[in-house]
Design a protein around this nucleic acid. Structure first.
Lengths: 349, 349
DNA sequence: CTGAAAGCGCTTACAG
DNA sequence: CTGAAAGCGCTTACAG
């Protein structure tokens, strides 16, 4: 580190050629004699030459860079999948990712966007850690942007979110498929929050029931809070009913986990006695449960990938309304769903 | 986006000054008349001027950038804390972080390091997702580097890792403190792997016992695999003994979680009948358990912070051996540790 | 306090 | 196929 890094001029001089030629071999351009190419390459090798990206950037105007801004309040296990998905797609296109965690601070957020723009990013993905409406820094309008797991009320940015309704529907269908008719649903949040994740999953549940001709029974629905404790309590509550459910659909894996403890306490076995489907696919929980939990996966990697892909391929600056994309939440089959117990299957055809 | 972004020249012309003056106000340098400053600033405002960072970088030689390379095989919930810690420290110093997930691919890793160097990073943090020995790309020697949660056999890079031994010791001490004497330990991996996390935590357990004058009893130790299933099985196994333990120290929270199910099955209550301490502080598990799990926190954020801090402040290029730092794993008290049951406390003073 | 000029390390036409 | 020159958007002495 003591000696100055060699520049293209040093290479040119040492190789006895002009800088243009060095640039040509560097960029693998045609019209370079094989002999000169070899010569130049060997000199670069010897001198340990590394191109300076900033110079290239300034000349070509291409930063090969995307910004990734996360808007989050608390550490979640999801951030990484999102980043991984985005980065995988970016790498295919030879781009890098500048990741910033604004951690819920508006000032930091504004500053971050400004910094990213000054760095010349080709686009910014603004990712929330759960599906909700957001207010974003105005400067985001200066640069191609896609919102991930969130959206603005005005829908003035491209956005990609999980298809909560469809996820809820498919979770419920999976249970119906096994003959269950008394299926409880514990929402992942109070409905009053208006969060799409809570509303949507419940709506999907209702849709599936309706389609299967199973009457909706309000007595089987509980408003949960998302955490394990809530699942534990509501499971006990539902268990206390005269005619307890044979299947449970929880809006989060954590609630399903709490419910497992409740089932164990009363001597019920999953999936022999009761079937369970979760939501989120937090695999450190879903895999750890006994039996492992069947759950709906939040498409974090896919959303990250979609976001970068959109930045890469969408025509910017046009007037058409930005796409509001919903990605499916695939079911991850593990071991918590089984056939409805024979004694409860009376109403089957 | 249709019009070209204004440069410092455009500002200079519009403000009727030279570019040097614009640069001076941009950098808040002294020796600018108040009137000119105001004038220039208003022009910048009007034209929506943003400095081009790449130009600044190329002139000053400062990239204000660190690389963050993760070497990981599988998604872990820890990556984010590491990144957050690193980024928090970087922001204080007005630096940004370029995050790359090499995902276990050597080619990608090499390429990533090359890219980062070309981007002019001031340093690279190379982070593993669990404490082990690594082989790193040679190019890392070209730039200040610190290894996080890993180390090289040659110890030729600065490194920061969790103090596994001390963590194991303090976990055990916590249990001894409550009068427990028959304390089981389930390691988080086969000892044959040689992983510091498995060896170290067990060693700490032994140290604590020795210091307390409690004879080490091999019958109380099991080699676990880290996952919930393993915890479940070994808990049952230990429970079957003639004189079962009153306390359990698990090398991972996931194993503790499995054990909770075993305890529930046999009607044992935590912490009334048995006490439990975990390791990792995976809070989505630790918080979700009933009662919440007392556990040793892996210092991910602290390691991330330390790494950037070291890059920022250490004198580089000197010959002294790079520091090999161990950071403590603080205990996180939740609700799983209680007094030894009276009937088991016979041997107390 | 301020402007004109040089230069950071590249790429890109333009001649030859 | 190749070299010399201009220029990307800044900062930094250097005169005034």
């Amino acid at each position: 580190m003591a000696v100055k890094k060699p520049s293209i001029h040093d290479i040119a001089k040492a190789a006895g050629v002009g800088v243009g030629t060095v640039s040509r071999v560097l960029n693998e351009r045609p019209n370079v004699a094989e002999a000169t190419r070899v010569k130049v390459e060997s000199v670069m090798e010897q001198l340990g030459y590394r191109p300076t990206f900033a110079a290239r950037h300034i000349r070509t105007g291409r930063s090969q860079l995307f910004g990734f801004l996360t808007d989050q309040v608390t550490t979640t296990p999801f951030a990484h999948d999102l980043i991984k998905g985005a980065q995988a797609r970016a790498r295919q296109a030879d781009r890098m990712l500048m990741v910033i965690d604004a951690d819920g601070d508006d000032r930091v957020r504004e500053q971050a966007v400004a910094n990213l723009i000054e760095r010349g990013v080709e686009g910014i993905v603004y990712a929330a850690m759960f599906h909700h409406e957001v207010h974003v820094p105005k400067a985001l309008h200066e640069v191609p942007t896609v919102l991930v797991d969130c959206f603005t009320l005005k829908r003035d940015f491209a956005s990609v979110v999980p298809d909560e309704v469809r996820g809820g529907r498919e979770a419920t269908e999976r249970l119906l498929e096994e003959g269950h008719r008394r299926i409880a649903m514990v929402t992942n949040d109070a409905l009053s929050t208006g969060y799409p994740a809570a509303m949507g999953r419940l709506e999907g549940y209702k849709e599936a029931l309706a389609e299967a001709g199973v009457p909706f029974d309000e007595a089987l629905v509980r408003e949960g809070s998302g955490n394990a404790d809530s699942g534990y309590r509501w499971a006990h509550d539902l268990l206390d009913a005269d005619d307890p459910p044979t299947a449970y659909f929880f809006g989060t894996d954590r609630m399903a986990m709490g419910a497992y403890f409740a089932f164990t306490e009363v001597g019920l076995t999953v999936p022999g006695d009761v079937s369970v489907v979760g939501f989120d696919d937090q695999h450190y929980i879903a895999d750890a449960l006994r039996p492992a939990l069947t759950t709906m996966a939040l498409p974090h990697a896919a959303m990250g990938r979609w976001a970068i892909d959109h930045l890469l391929t969408a025509p910017w600056g046009e007037d058409r309304p930005p796409p509001q994309r919903r990605l499916p939440c695939p079911i991850v089959e593990r071991g918590s769903v089984g056939r409805v117990p024979a004694s409860d299957a009376g109403e089957e055809p």
